[in-house]
Design a protein around this nucleic acid. Structure first.
Lengths: 302, 302
DNA sequence: TCAATCAATGAATTTTTCTCATGATTAATA
DNA sequence: TATTAATCATGAGAAAAATTCATTGATTGA
């Protein structure tokens, strides 16, 4: 009488939402149409509330049904991940470390951490999400990822942040660009430039949030490019300027005619952090990954 | 073969964690000890991994078991809330609007929104969490609350913020306090004062984060008090000073010998927001609550 | 060593779930 | 409009799963 909602109920609700009809949903779930009907009927009688109503030859969710659907969409993915995790445990795996990257230019750096980690922890799988669209903190909190690499610190007691290494965001220009002789650029300098960035919102680009927006300035034009290699090539070809971490500049400095300029007289200084859920603090392989990230960070910036 | 983890499994795992022995857990779950043993045994055989090992006469979780425990602690509360919600639907309720308050002095103001809301939406239950310890954003994202009232905006695509009303944080002092003649106070002025605040971390007190800390100043002493009535009484009795919203000062201004002073020459201006999950944007009673909050906010500050 | 405590196990039983066959309703079609 | 196809609901019976009971084996503490 206490526990009413079972996994199967959520599965049925989601199935109907996805496949419109009970009959089709039943095929997907490898059950008879009748079985689903009975199952939901029973839940309805226990709760005393209708979950759907037959609208013509189709079903339509009631408020209750829609509530259950949202519950299903939230809970089933977690259970499914649980199922997969259990299978992995049985294969001697300890689990999957799902990493989210919010610092797009940091991908190269991440590889330096990943390779040794994979060797030291053969029983841990890695899954790196480098999506331009995903919301880092949400997916961390929703257990879609386990570790987030980000330059943005937020206030949240349930998360643990560890600083990895400091870096400076610099403006990269061609060597014979008109700004190249300057020791640093001002926001006004950028008003006549074409700015190249990754294809994410300006609220997630430090050049905007920490430099341009406070001053009210805008670049003459703003183009988005997915890949930083191409971005730098375009800068070298005097097709625009871009803001990247100083260590990334260093990698291309010798091979391309580019120059790095400070953003503002003091420079735009950032720090990279790992973020994990506080509850995962004692998981050995997560701890190990963070430590190893710090190590690589230290040798890198020295 | 696809779905392995059932609610009952999580229930059993959590029961054992809570009550140490299988026998006791079985009593709580109104099942026989044998039933639990069989159920887990079956899950083990399906996944091919041990969940616990018999350690002497007790059980000890394996890695897998601990993983399942954390899953249980995360998922079961959501299902339990689902169960309760279904019961409410059957009673004609639409659901429970669970509100989290992060602005401690705003409680009085909230009541003005709540009372009309309860009348307009008799089919919605209200549950207000005014905990000094709870983490507002976490509980919102974890579906422990549905609406958060907070002065702190954070960056998160999955949440929707709505500004309710602006207010000014002012320093409240006794009328014959030595600072009373001033038109505003500086951070240095506070270095000789006893500051009274709510019992939350200084990182969640604007007087610290937005006033004292940037200047490096500290009050002579810092005392915490749970209740703002007592706080104001103590201020009137010259036992200290406190920072509260200007509208709260207005309520006591006539009955107590107190005075409000700006914090810094410009004053410390804040805005109150409601935060909801973007996914809940279309829920009618949530929309209604936010609208009604804005309305009350407007009449209040006019 | 003995009694007590606890988990595991197998067999029997109860309960639940599922299917099959069928009916009822609706929507499309001839 | 009559016909047909599609869809969900329902009841009875069959199959499967969960639960209990009774017992065993292991461990601990007295």
């Amino acid at each position: 009488m206490i526990n009413m909602i079972e996994r199967s109920h959520l599965e049925i609700i989601r199935g109907i939402d996805r496949h419109r009809t009970l009959t089709e949903a039943s095929a997907i779930l490898h059950l008879s149409q009748s079985a689903l009907s009975h199952a939901i009927r029973k839940l309805e009688s226990r709760t005393g509330t209708k979950i759907w109503i037959k609208q013509g030859r189709n079903l339509e969710f009631t408020d209750t049904g829609r509530f259950l659907l949202s519950l299903a969409n939230r809970i089933l993915p977690q259970l499914e991940h649980g199922d997969r995790a259990l299978k992995q445990f049985s294969n001697g795996k300890k689990g999957t470390l799902r990493i989210g990257m919010e610092c797009h230019p940091c991908y190269q750096w991440l590889l330096k951490v990943v390779l040794p980690f994979l060797q030291t922890w053969p029983e841990v799988d890695l899954d790196i999400k480098k999506d331009f669209q995903f919301d880092g903190y949400s997916s961390l909190k929703d257990h879609e990822t386990d570790l987030l690499i980000t330059p943005d610190l937020i206030k949240d007691n349930t998360l643990i942040f560890t600083p990895i290494f400091p870096y400076e965001l610099v403006l990269i220009v061609a060597r014979n660009h008109k700004l190249a002789p300057k020791s640093y650029v001002t926001t006004e300098d950028l008003e006549t430039e074409t700015l190249l960035t990754y294809p994410v919102g300006t609220d997630r680009l430090d050049i905007f949030t920490n430099f341009l927006i406070p001053s009210g300035c805008k670049p003459a034009s703003h183009k988005v490019i997915e890949d930083h290699e191409i971005m730098i090539q375009m800068v070298a070809a005097e097709r625009g300027v871009t803001a990247l971490p100083n260590w990334m500049f260093a990698e291309y400095n010798e091979t391309l005619p580019i120059k790095a300029l400070r953003l503002g007289s003091g420079g735009l200084h950032k720090k990279l952090y790992t973020a994990i859920r506080a509850i995962d603090h004692d998981v050995d392989y997560i701890q190990a990954f963070v430590s190893s990230a710090i190590e690589v960070g230290e040798t890198d910036s020295s």
